[in-house]
């Protein structure tokens, strides 16, 4: 039981990372009905920035600076590569984001250099005992960060004018425009938010040990998460993220007991298997809204 609960704790930590990433995906999707495959690159950029900044300023100062910088980067990418394509087929825009991902990832990766890097986080492998269960501090931190960021996002959408505009635009873009919502601002904000979220997620994905440029692969796990949660559901993203994280951790812990013949860690494919199972029953994910088709 302890092992199980510890796995759950571990899972909540990675799940929080997934949830943060997934929130970024969903925000962009809600704004422009596009999946941005550039999120992994923004995540990597965030990690690289923090790892450099942490050398000069401390970790706590490095994170907000890096988040802001990545948000700006995302803003620039949106302006240069995405805005001209607004109105084109969503798939085409999605592939453009793939191109952006490749480019940003190469540039960010170049800064990682030959040897592994560290984000200089204060938690390392330290554990904290919660009700008899050992939980890595970094997982606790990730969970707290996710809750805080989620709360801030909620407040942002609920209480700020631009948040309201984004909600309106997500509901009905044309009606929102007619009401004076600047859709361009909505796009830009959504990209900046998503970029910042990716950077935050990256920081927590990179805690606990040295990393190299292949860390970006973590972000791919957010794709089944958003499908599972429903592409347009922020709450779904958080819940599905935590769910996937926990399932993944539990499978990793018990895989050898259940199926001893399997050598390879099944963790990475668990999200996809869960996603496919759910899609068989609910083609729009757990919390997604059904697309209304007009012919």
């Amino acid at each position: 039981m302890t092992a199980f609960l510890e796995a759950v704790g571990e899972g909540l930590g990675t799940g929080s990372v997934y949830a943060l990433l997934a929130l970024g995906f969903v925000i962009i999707y809600k704004a422009m009905q596009v999946i941005s495959f550039a999120q992994p690159a923004f995540m990597l950029a965030g990690i690289v920035l923090v790892s450099y900044l942490a050398e000069s300023v401390n970790f706590w100062a490095a994170v907000p600076i890096a988040v802001a910088a990545v948000a700006l980067l995302a803003l620039a990418v949106e302006r240069v590569a995405i805005r001209p394509m607004v109105g084109k087929a969503v798939f085409v825009i999605a592939i453009i984001t793939l191109g952006v991902d490749v480019v940003v990832r190469v540039v960010a990766g170049a800064f990682i250099g030959v040897d592994p890097r560290s984000v200089g986080d204060p938690w390392g492998q330290e554990v904290v005992n919660v009700a008899g269960i050992d939980m890595a501090q970094r997982n606790v931190a990730a969970l707290i960060a996710m809750v805080v960021v989620g709360g801030l996002l909620f407040a942002f959408f609920r209480f700020t004018p631009i948040g309201l505009a984004m909600r309106a635009s997500a509901l009905d873009q044309e009606a929102a425009m007619a009401q004076g919502v600047n859709v361009g601002t909505v796009f830009a904000t959504s990209w900046a938010l998503a970029g910042g979220l990716a950077a935050v997620a990256g920081v927590f994905a990179a805690t606990g040990g040295p990393i190299d440029q292949n860390i970006w692969i973590v972000a791919l796990a957010a794709l089944p998460v958003i499908i599972l949660g429903g592409l347009d559901s922020l709450g779904g993203a958080v819940l599905a993220g935590l769910l996937i994280g926990v399932v993944q951790a539990v499978v990793a812990t018990y895989q050898r007991d259940w199926v001893p013949s399997l050598e390879t860690n099944a963790g990475p494919i668990v999200p996809y298997l869960v996603m496919m199972l759910v899609l068989l029953v609910r083609p729009y994910g757990l919390f997604g809204t059904k697309e209304v088709e007009r012919v």
């Binding site: 798939f91 999605a94 794709l223 089944p224 499908i227 999200p271 729009y284």
Partner: peptide
Amino acid sequence: LRGLYLAIVTLG
């Protein structure tokens, strides 16, 4: 499935 849902599932 359609569109991006299909894309992600095939990615899986």
